[in-house]
């Protein structure tokens, strides 16, 4: 049942990504300006400019350019960057690990802390504990990321000198960016966990387990938390786009490379193949993430599982 559903959804990705490719192509070519001005230098002639435009095929109709691009993509070739002058696939491959590292660690950090805080808030209902967690959640979800990043640099990197100000040299350079992004994520995870626990706690089978005389911790760890994990996993899958490309601001402040930075830089230089390639890749990742999230939800839903037992 779940298998058939998954295959159906998987097949849907093909037409959808084709439609997306058209949208992305149009968006990119709607941008005012072109990449050629980033290539010419003082002293080159207007004829050089025309020659360059022709060299990169930018003098062809949009229709032709699109088909050239999409047929390349079909063969797995993301094309060659115009301004950055190397295969787009190489550029993505170079930046992806940085994004995965930062996004993955930030997510792990916020999941763990968020889960704990969510459980604490749930377990300490109507006490100061709940208020504290709620306050923390509120703070985390309201502070602009770049502002937090700046303050972190000022405090931990400059005043205390514990971590480097910027760059991506070793693990120490990861700490502040991970904390900055993770802080915002904690709020989300804690909120979702708390609500999920409240909801699962109300389910009949939990009441039944209580009635069976199981201890509270057993119920919490054996039954409640596994169920509360479901929404967290779902968020992870749904947020894959954020993990890969959402760290632009933090990457900018900490001078870190990454997919988001690559995209923004290419966008500024109108490096069409790079913008198109990285947006398409992000869109694909998002679709697969959503798919996994949905399947996970379907597969792990306690009601569905209980029903199939």
């Amino acid at each position: 049942m779940i298998l058939k559903y998954s295959i159906q959804r998987l097949l849907m990705i093909i037409p959808v990504s084709l439609a997306i490719s058209v949208v992305i192509f149009l968006i990119v070519h709607l941008l005012p300006g072109d990449p050629i001005d980033n290539l010419i230098r003082v002293g080159s002639s207007p004829e050089d400019r025309i020659a360059l435009t022709a060299k990169y095929g930018l003098d062809q109709s949009l229709f032709e350019q699109y088909f050239l691009w999409i047929s390349q993509i079909m063969t797995g070739d993301f094309g060659q960057a115009i301004v950055l002058r190397r295969p787009v696939a190489d550029l993505i491959a170079q930046n992806l690990p940085y994004s995965l590292q930062l996004g993955g660690l930030a997510f792990l950090f916020s999941s763990i802390v968020g889960l704990i805080l969510g459980i604490v808030a749930w377990a300490s209902q109507k006490t100061w504990g709940e208020q504290f967690v709620k306050g923390f959640i509120l703070l985390g979800s309201t502070v602009p990321g770049f502002w937090l990043a700046l303050l972190m640099i000022l405090f931990f990197a400059v005043n205390l000198g514990w971590f480097p100000v910027s760059g991506a040299r070793d693990w120490t350079a990861l700490v502040l960016p991970v904390l900055t992004i993770g802080f915002g994520g904690i709020a989300l995870v804690a909120r979702v966990t708390r609500v999920a626990l409240l909801e699962v706690g109300r389910e009949d089978f939990i009441t039944l387990l209580h009635a069976k005389g199981l201890s509270r911790p057993t119920i919490l760890f054996r039954h409640l938390i596994p169920h509360a994990l479901l929404p967290v996993v779902t968020i992870l899958a749904l947020r894959i786009g954020w993990i890969l490309g959402g760290a632009v601001t933090v990457e900018f402040v900490f001078g870190r490379p990454g997919l988001g930075s690559l995209l923004i830089r290419a966008l500024g230089q109108r490096d069409y193949p790079v913008v198109q390639g990285s947006l398409l890749m992000l869109a694909l990742a998002v679709m697969i993430g959503t798919l996994i999230g949905d399947i996970a939800q379907a597969a792990m839903d306690p009601r569905i599982r209980e029903a199939t037992k």
Partner: peptide, 15 residues
């Protein structure tokens, strides 16, 4: 909608 919802809002806005 699902696609844009899963896309970082800052990227959408910047583009």
């Amino acid at each position: 909608v699902d696609l844009t919802w899963s896309f970082p809002d800052i990227l959408i806005a910047l583009i």
